[in-house]
């Protein structure tokens, strides 16, 4: 046994050194500021013509999906996100109206918090969307209305926090017999739940969505 070890030691040594030196790798995440940890994804229904919508309404509270449980809330932070969404929608020419005034677009905001070690697949978010956001809120609770989102939407895994903003086509819901989600903005990363950065986070989503305009 000893002689075998003697024979292989010169080959084991380099491998040992190689594994040891691998610890010199620069840690990517430690070199990111909180803002830099985030990624901003937007996706849209390519059949939608956004300039055909003129009015919008935003839900009066946000849905918090917390480790599989969900509830509605309106905190100072969630209000800051709502205010920012309204601000940038109006900058793009859309008019804010009360939801009783038959808006062309409805906007839902969901905050997803996952403190467990497992990840949440974004596709399950869509699958349970009718539970998080009852169609009756937008006046389509009768007649079996369901939500529809395009197959082309990417499915992202959420391992910590995420904010999802969903734009609903209410103008054509009756004709389509379903509520189409024609735009979705997703923010993933650290420190999302922060009122002081809500405006800049929403601004990023709108900046990368130049097609969102009423004219």
């Amino acid at each position: 046994m000893k002689s075998f070890l003697q024979k292989i030691k010169w080959f084991v040594l380099p491998i040992f050194v190689l594994v040891s030196l691998q610890s010199c790798t620069k840690n990517v995440v430690n070199n990111l500021s909180t803002d830099e940890t985030r990624m901003y994804v937007t996706q849209f229904d390519s059949t939608a013509q956004f300039n055909r919508y003129k009015t919008f309404s935003i839900s009066d509270s946000i849905t918090v999906i917390d480790n599989g449980q969900y509830y509605k809330t309106l905190t100072q932070t969630s209000q800051a996100f709502k205010d920012a969404i309204v601000k940038y929608m109006q900058q793009r020419g859309y008019t804010l109206v009360n939801k009783s005034s038959s808006p062309d677009l409805g906007i839902d905001v969901s905050f997803i918090n996952n403190s467990s070690t497992s990840v949440i697949d974004y596709s399950s978010y869509w699958d349970y969307y009718g539970g998080y956001w009852d169609p009756s809120y937008w006046g389509y609770g009768y007649g079996g209305y369901g939500y529809y989102y395009p197959d082309s939407y990417g499915y992202y895994q959420i391992n910590q926090q995420a904010l999802s903003i969903d734009m609903l086509d209410l103008k054509n819901a009756a004709a389509n017999n379903q509520i189409k989600i024609i735009w979705n903005g997703l923010i993933k990363g650290e420190g999302i739940d922060d009122a002081t950065t809500a405006d800049s986070q929403i601004s990023t989503l709108f900046t990368q969505s130049p097609y969102l305009k009423a004219q």
């Binding site: 491998i15 990517v28 901003y40 937007t42 996706q43 990417g154």
Partner: peptide, 28 residues
């Protein structure tokens, strides 16, 4: 027998990229 390791790293400023024609992502 030669061995070694080299760690290359580069961080690019926040920019927007197309994931698909109807999907965009902004990130560092």
């Amino acid at each position: 027998l030669g061995f070694g390791t080299q760690d290359f790293y580069q961080k690019y400023p926040m920019a927007t990229y197309d994931l698909a024609p109807n999907q965009q992502v902004s990130a560092v």
